[in-house]
Simulated assay, not measured.
Amino acid sequence: MTMTEQYAAHEPARAEIDALRGPALIEFGAPWCGYCLRAQPHLARALQAYPGVRHVKVEDGSGRPLGRSFRVRLWPTLVFLRDGVEVARLVRPDGAEAIEKALRQIGG
């Protein structure tokens, strides 16, 4: 799967995320967030080499249950899952290398 460009129109429920099979990357952020915008080229570069990783882009904010269930505090927060279980997490990544390392950990 390629990188998801747009934030999901509807936030998935935590049960849906926990039920995901295989490698997945949940990206929490906001379309107006400068840190999130700067991370996009790094994400795109890293995800190019991992087409088997499902990328779910979730707009986060106050009162959003999915972000709170993952204890997201800063954007972007990248949560790397394998079969619905968190394996790695990056907050405000500043390069593709750290993202690629986390993708290798989930077997993307």
Results as ranks from 00 to 15, higher is better:
Thr2Arg: 10
Met3Glu: 11
Met3Cys: 09
Thr4Gly: 04
Thr4Arg: 06
Glu5Asp: 15
Glu5Val: 13
Gln6Ser: 09
Tyr7Arg: 03
Ala8Asn: 05
Ala8Trp: 07
Ala9Lys: 15
Ala9Ile: 13
His10Lys: 15
His10Phe: 14
Glu11Lys: 01
Glu11Trp: 06
Glu11Phe: 04
Glu11Gln: 02
Pro12Thr: 07
Pro12Gly: 10
Ala13His: 05
Arg14Asn: 07
Ala15Ser: 13
Ile17Pro: 02
Asp18Arg: 05
Ala19Ser: 13
Ala19Cys: 02
Leu20Cys: 04
Arg21Ile: 11
Arg21Glu: 12
Arg21Met: 10
Gly22Val: 11
Gly22His: 01
Pro23Ala: 08
Leu25Ala: 06
Ile26Leu: 10
Ile26Cys: 02
Ile26Trp: 01
Glu27Thr: 11
Phe28His: 03
Phe28Asn: 08
Ala30Pro: 00
Ala30Lys: 13
Trp32Val: 15
Gly34Ala: 15
Tyr35Pro: 05
Cys36Met: 12
Leu37Gly: 03
Arg38Ile: 13
Gln40Lys: 13
Pro41Asp: 09
Pro41His: 04
Pro41Val: 04
Ala44Asn: 14
Arg45Asn: 12
Arg45Trp: 03
Arg45Val: 15
Arg45His: 14
Ala46Met: 07
Ala46His: 00
Ala46Trp: 01
Gln48Ile: 12
Ala49His: 14
Ala49Pro: 11
Pro51Thr: 10
Pro51Cys: 12
Arg54Gln: 13
Arg54Ser: 14
Glu59Cys: 05
Glu59Asn: 09
Gly61Trp: 08
Gly61Ile: 12
Ser62Cys: 00
Ser62Arg: 09
Ser62Lys: 06
Leu66Thr: 11
Leu66Cys: 10
Leu66Asp: 10
Gly67Glu: 01
Arg68Met: 13
Arg68Ser: 14
Arg68Lys: 14
Phe70Ser: 06
Phe70Lys: 06
Arg71Cys: 06
Arg73Phe: 14
Arg73Val: 15
Arg73Leu: 15
Arg73Gln: 15
Thr77Asn: 09
Leu78Thr: 00
Leu78Gln: 07
Leu78His: 02
Val79Cys: 08
Phe80Cys: 10
Phe80Asp: 08
Leu81Gln: 03
Arg82Asn: 13
Gly84Trp: 01
Val85Asn: 02
Val85Lys: 13
Val85Asp: 07
Glu86Lys: 06
Val87Met: 05
Val87Leu: 08
Leu90Met: 01
Val91Arg: 04
Arg92Gln: 12
Pro93Asn: 00
Pro93Gln: 01
Gly95Ala: 01
Ala96Gly: 05
Ala96Asn: 05
Glu97Trp: 00
Ala98Ile: 03
Ala98Pro: 04
Ile99Leu: 05
Ile99Val: 08
Glu100Ile: 04
Lys101Pro: 00
Lys101Asp: 12
Gln105Cys: 06
Gly107Ser: 00
Gly108Pro: 04
Gly108Arg: 02
